[in-house]
Design a protein around this nucleic acid. Structure first.
Length: 421
RNA sequence: GGAGGGAUAGCGAAGUGGCUAAACGCGGCGGACUGUAAAUCCGCUCCUUCGGGUUCGUAGGUUCGAAUCCUACUCCCUCCA
């Protein structure tokens, strides 16, 4: 199976600029290709991962990916996918974000190292030195305002307004593509479906500068939606981040574990490096024995191991087993310390506490007394695995582990750790 | 600058003097079922020491009583200049 056939099978192709041309080029030689990310945040979330997983697939197929960190483009702000003007971030923040994203790329893809075969570049290196007059003379002249205005991203913003800065974004991303074409032999840019306009702008620039024979291509990836029609990668609490400080490995594992049957096979194709045979097998199991959740488990394991580590995965699994078996009363304080280290935690003084006060005033587990009482009456609150339904219950040492921790379970799957100090 | 329309709980949206702490929908939380799923169903969803207290853009006023009437102000939308 060629790389493009594989992407097709994985459902990862939305649009291509020249399907036949790209197919024959990738079959005849190893090409360089790139995908960029702007440092608007200090970590990627799961949604960002998709195009980079595809770069990795190209690399596995013998091609040469380049990951671009958009230190320069990020200082301008991509209007794609937005319906209002961005607030510019400070350059310090952008630089800091760029450093953090670069570190994440090195960790995940070994980007920038010899053995990985994946390059890491920052467009700040070539965009920052570009003078305004050079920019206008060398590149601005190649762009027709009418064409720029016609791009969806711009035209949809004409009535609400768009600044010259964001309007110019497509030009500087085009300059990137041209730069990489000239200096790294990059012939393909991939990106999310909202990048189509920026990618084709780059292709136009390459043709104008390098002549009609220049071979460069674009490929976009479909927008990933969940079966219920909502956006992928957001939980109630926000995005699922790759940074373990923002989303713990346990939460990360649980995110994948809980995917809908209707989505799980799609995600295995999109996100994992499992083979077609392995995925077909898992898809079969979703049909025949869905209750075993083999596909969800495989997805959660693959992703947690890839993004974090085998150790983090082992820990996430052991936490999950302890929590969902419900048998936590026999754990020792030391086991609690390791098992619950990723669970939301707070502090309370040793000694006796009224349960409602503990939940509301001391730990903030419940937002109000009314809510706390309601949950207690409904049997939603457990201490050390034991359901407490007495609103006047007094929490004491016997509800703790070694007088060091109290574990509160609220509802079926929310746990809170209270450190006794 | 002129003429209208609007602002209600996390969001959307009813409500035009007392029966309104405020219908309904969504979201959220809890529960049942189950597979830590989906769908479905049930309960809750301003705070409370359970006496009550504080809410309907903001500030005043009328009234026994106001989200509802009056005045001023702020913000948003539409049309005109």
């Amino acid at each position: 199976m060629t790389i493009l056939d594989e992407l097709e099978w994985r459902g990862a192709i939305n649009q291509q600029t020249d399907e036949e041309g790209l197919k024959s080029l990738t079959e005849e030689k190893s090409i360089a290709l790139y995908c960029g990310i702007d440092p608007s945040g200090d970590s990627m979330h799961v949604g960002h991962l998709i195009p980079f997983m595809i770069l990795k697939r190209f690399q596995l197929a013998g091609h040469k990916p380049v990951i671009l960190i958009g230190g320069g483009t990020g200082s301008i702000g991509d209007p794609s996918g937005r319906n209002s003007e961005r607030v510019l971030q400070t350059m310090d923040k952008i630089m800091d974000n760029a450093d953090k994203l670069s570190a994440q790329m090195r960790k995940l893809f070994k980007a920038g190292s010899e053995e990985s075969g994946i390059k890491l570049v920052n467009n700040y290196d070539w965009l920052s030195g570009l003078s305004f007059l050079d920019f206008l003379r060398d590149f601005g002249k190649e762009f027709n305002i009418n064409t720029m205005l016609a791009k969806d991203v711009v035209s949809s913003r004409l009535d609400t307004g768009i600044s010259f800065t964001e309007f110019s974004y497509q030009i500087i991303q085009s300059v990137d593509f041209l730069h990489l074409f000239q200096n790294e032999d990059v012939q393909l840019q991939i990106g999310g479906s909202d990048q189509w306009g920026n990618i084709t702008a780059g292709l136009d620039l390459i043709r104008k500068k390098e002549g009609p024979e220049a071979k460069a291509f674009g490929l976009t990836i479909p927008l990933l939606l969940k079966a219920d029609g909502t956006k992928f990668g957001k939980s109630a609490d926000g995005a699922i981040w790759l940074d373990p400080e923002k989303t713990t490995p346990y939460e990360f594992y649980q995110f994948w574990f809980n995917q809908d049957d209707r989505d799980v096979v799609k995600y295995l194709k999109y996100f994992t490096f499992l083979t077609k045979d392995e995925i077909d097998e898992l898809a079969e199991q979703v049909e025949t024995e869905p209750h075993k959740r083999a596909a969800q488990k495989a997805l959660a394991e693959e992703m947690t191991r890839f993004v974090h580590s085998q150790e983090a995965l082992d820990e996430a699994i052991s936490i999950s087993q302890a929590l969902f078996s419900g048998d936590i009363q026999d754990l020792t304080a030391d086991q609690i310390a390791t098992t619950f280290k990723d669970v939301p935690s707070s502090e309370a003084a040793k000694g006796e506490h009224n349960l409602v006060e503990l939940l509301v005033d001391i730990t903030g587990i419940e937002p109000s007394r009314r809510q706390a009482r309601e949950d207690i009456k409904n049997g939603a609150i457990r201490l050390k695995g034991t359901q407490i339904q007495d609103v006047d219950y007094v929490v004491s040492e016997k509800d703790s582990y070694d007088n060091r921790f109290i574990i509160v379970r609220k509802g079926k799957k929310k746990y809170f750790l209270i450190n006794l100090v």
